[in-house]
Amino acid sequence: MLIRPASPDDAAAIAALILPEIAAGETYALPRDMDAAAAVAYWCGPDRQTFVLEDEARLLGSYFLCANQAGGGDHVANAGYMVDPAARGRGVARAMANDSFDRARANGFTAMQFNFVVSSNRRAVDLWQALGFDVVGQLPGAFRHPLLGPVDALVMFRKL
């Protein structure tokens, strides 16, 4: 598996990866009807570094890395990750997470914070906890899950 910076040539593959997850509305607080251009603009925005993980020239995942806040909070990183459903269980998310930690440290970040982890996304919550994140806040009913109704959102944090 190769993790590399995303390029403009990756836009269609990134859109194909992230649009189904956004449309499902179960893990990201984004408009479910987001079109490809808006989704790619969000994922690859000018305030973030975006990476792709590919295996045999097939995109299996992508993540972005950015500052969680400006000014006095710009030493804490934030990131978002998506994995092709067909590649789940193959270590793609873990590989991208570890890569993001290394890149965040190289960029001078001293910690990473996830502001809104949907509590029903157990795969993500379990992975983040296994990788040293603590739940430092819980927002009761902050996410409207399309199947489960209101579920909590978690704030998760770890030092790098």
Rank of each mutant, 00 (worst) to 15 (best):
P46T: 11
A29R: 04
F157A: 04
L139V: 01
A24T: 03
L19T: 06
A95F: 03
G71V: 02
D35L: 06
P20R: 07
G72A: 15
N68F: 10
A93K: 05
V125N: 12
P146R: 09
Q113A: 14
I22M: 12
P46H: 12
A142K: 10
G45H: 11
L60P: 09
G61W: 05
P31I: 10
P150Y: 00
R122Q: 14
A106V: 03
M112E: 09
I18M: 07
G91V: 02
V118C: 10
N115K: 10
L17S: 02
Q49W: 12
P46N: 12
E54H: 06
A13Y: 08
L19C: 08
F143R: 05
T110M: 09
P5K: 15
V76L: 14
V125F: 02
T27D: 08
L2Q: 14
A57I: 00
G132R: 02
A29K: 03
Q113W: 01
V135I: 15
D33K: 02
D84H: 13
F114S: 01
G89V: 09
G89R: 06
T27V: 12
W43T: 01
R158P: 14
A41S: 09
V151P: 06
D99K: 04
G45P: 06
F64Y: 04
D152V: 02
G89N: 08
A124Q: 10
A130M: 04
N107G: 12
V118G: 05
V40R: 08
D33A: 10
A37K: 09
M1G: 12
A38T: 11
A13V: 06
A23Y: 00
A39R: 03
V117Q: 04
A124I: 07
A86N: 11
L2K: 13
P46Y: 05
G141S: 09
A153P: 15
S119K: 05
N68I: 01
M82S: 15
V92I: 07
V76A: 15
R94I: 00
A111V: 07
R32M: 10
G80Y: 01
T50Y: 04
G149F: 07
G61V: 10
V136G: 02
M1Y: 00
A6T: 05
G141L: 06
V136Q: 12
A23D: 05
W128E: 07
S120Y: 01
G149A: 07
L127N: 07
L147E: 14
M112H: 12
R94T: 09
D55V: 09
A6G: 07
A130L: 06
L65Q: 09
D9L: 13
D152L: 03
F143V: 07
A37W: 05
D84T: 04
S100W: 02
T27R: 07
D134V: 14
D84V: 10
T27N: 07
Y28H: 11
A104V: 02
R4N: 08
M112F: 00
A24D: 14
G73T: 11
Q113K: 15
I22R: 12
A86V: 11
I3P: 05
G71W: 11
A67G: 13
Q113C: 13
F109D: 03
Y81F: 15
A153N: 13
H145M: 04
R4G: 11
